[in-house]
Amino acid sequence: MRPVEIGLDGLLCLLLLVLAWKALRAPHLYQSAIYFIALGLVMALAWVRLAAPDVALAEAAIGTGLLGVLLIDSLRVFARDSKTDPDAESEEPPPGEINVYPAGSARPSGRTLPMILVTASCGLLAILLVEAIIELPDGGGLTAAAQENLERSGVDHPVTAVLLNYRGYDTWLEVGVLLLAMLGIFCAGGRVGFAETRQSNPPGHLLSWLIRALAPLMILAAAYLLWLGKLAPGGAFQSGVILGSAGILLRLAGFQVISRLPPLAVKLGLLLGFGVFLIFGGAALLTGRAFLEYPEARAGELILLVETAAAVSIGFTIFAFFAYLNSRDQPEAQENHAREEGGNQKP
């Protein structure tokens, strides 16, 4: 490796450490959020330097759009909650200055026991990771086996072959984790999130122009990455995140996205990825193959189908995460929710 490359990698490592420390120790949660967003972006660059474009794509898709939007929107909810708190009244800003993220955004003082637990588990994880690197077998473990069977997997990109064919089980359960997170949100707050409300700020000319230009491009990019997964870095997860981000963009501008669809279609959209995996797995078992084993001749088409279903579900789920948080404690949303529930009770 040449000295300039060592210089670049060293600089990225240093920047990562500084950003991580600042994200933990900044005086306000809003500053922490900014540091954390920057950390995600630098992390994507680090993955690129490690020659791992698949991970870099996933990190970029989550880190640039979704993560920042969720953090900033959650801070808004914290800020509103603290406004109703009588103790927070004393921290009114001086006249002429409007406090966007008031008392709720101040970093809570650290408690000793959780700090010790977090530090201990981080230390344990670091030790395990170092040990895993030391024990890495020569020649990269299963790389040779993955390359050898690539022709039979139905795709041309080894990472996609691992994710969708060799280790389809893992991907299926990962889609399940997202679904479980969504169900958790439903349990915590009901289905209010799906009843979308009009934003308080209607989009101006610039924003509506931007959204008209960006939203189709995002959907196009999602389709492109989904297709690309067959032969190059890309695939269902990255594609789904971009799809979900397009939904978030439309929602931020006050467009109705999910409430236009019948509730049954929304539920199907959320369940599609997990369900298609399950149907394929079950069908494979019934025809005497192993769970999630594709018939070799049609593996390529089936993988594309499963990936498309997974991408749609991931997009729906990620959008629903945001939609739920964004409309939490808005009275209109609850009215819509009540109306929708009433409609559902019809025989």
Binding site: Y30, A60, L66, I98, N99, L207, I242
Partner: peptide, 29 residues
């Protein structure tokens, strides 16, 4: 490509949730 498409979301979120109500000189602390 992903950076270019998605980085704008944070700004739109910021403007739409705090923007016009807070005005240009908003101070957060």
């Amino acid at each position: 490509l992903i950076f270019a498409l998605l980085a704008i979301l944070i700004v739109i979120c910021f403007v739409q949730t705090t923007g016009s109500a807070a005005g240009p000189g908003n101070r957060e602390a």
